[in-house]
Amino acid sequence: MPANILIVDDEPNIVISLEFLMAQNGLNPFIARSGEQAIDHLEKQIPDLILLDVMLPNRSGFDILQYIRRSERLKNIKVVMLTARGREQDISKGMDLGADAYVTKPFSTRDLIKKVKELTQREP
């Protein structure tokens, strides 16, 4: 059964590219265009991994990450942070909050897929 991947980003073209990439690599992508949409989605379904943009309207990616890690139900979801910010303190903040990986935009598609596959296969 293909892993479910939730893509959370507000930039339409990036969402299109990510959705295509996931589908192409045998993963099952879902889309959320804002933090609220992502929370709504998580109420209904628990994905295996979330690709989470940091710069989101209203609720930042860090907020969502914190929400996930604090929830008994959601805390085991793998989270890959996506951001244009490449600063050390942002990376360490993401890691502190419990992100599993951190990918800086613009990312290499191959690296991203590799990371996503690693994270989804480590624990069956």
């Binding site: 930039e11 073209n13 990036i14 590219s17 990510l18 295509f20 990439l21 192409q24 710069m55 244009a84 910010r85 935009k105 613009p106 990312f107 290499s108 598609t109 191959r110």
Partner: peptide, 23 residues
């Protein structure tokens, strides 16, 4: 930050689609 973000956003799309087309 904003400029970086704004510049990186189109760059991200461009790179992603270019690599998709290549791969």
């Amino acid at each position: 930050f904003t400029v970086t973000h704004e510049l990186k956003t189109p760059l991200t799309s461009i790179r992603a689609f270019t690599e998709i087309l290549r791969d």
